[in-house]
Amino acid sequence: MSHHTISVVDLGFVYPDGTRALENVSFEVGHGEAIAVVGANGAGKSTLLMHLNGLLSPTQGTVHIGGLPVIKSTLPEIRRTVGMIFQDSDDQLFMPTVAEDVGFGPLNLGLPPEDVAARVDEALGRVGAAHLKERPPYRLSGGEKRAVAIATVLAMEPNMLVMDEPSSGLDPQARRRLIGLLASFEHTRIIATHDLDMAAELCERVLVMSGGRLVADASVRDVFTDDELLAASGLERPLGMQACPVCGGTEAGRAGPAGDR
């Protein structure tokens, strides 16, 4: 797998109960890109993400990851390549201790125990959670859980990271640390979020979903200044790009955060 790219063509998905969750979604993601997926509740963001590592199979259209089609026979390879970080970290941390949870993926990959231990230490160190190693997951704070959940995925050494609401439920400082961490990654990143300021800070490109359709695929600056599009999609400008409620002016320097990266 030479390129960490994603190609989604004419993707459609209907839930078994008849709900049409996705319709004619097509987009490409290049190597190393960071992309935000935004949209109102129920716009189809999570459903879209679940197609990127084969948790759901398309009713229509295709998904390719690094040139490989996402089909049953490629799932093990796809799931190693695409690391998925869930919205509720409790869903993701199911082992008795943090270390064992982080080691779960590598052990399933068939790595010898010494290598697993090394990967666990490395992944936990990367997210600044080395001191939590022996703790049971239920005794972690929300921010710690999120950091560990990210480590569980990093330990599999994926090429791409797919994240569903990574900043939800975090206190401001934990959120800030998370943003710093995500900015330091070189993986191809897809981030579904309502935290538009984080999206503006981390991503160059934004996909806007509305009613299961992809209604915009453009740069951060273009999307987040298009008030008509934002309103129609149940969104608003990121706070950092709104007029200041005290002085009435916008900070030009912060208006295009993607530009100052």
Partner: peptide
């Protein structure tokens, strides 16, 4: 969801 998270990591 837990099962899906486990599948994602090669369960």
């Amino acid at each position: 969801r837990v099962y899906e998270a486990m599948l994602c990591r090669g369960f």
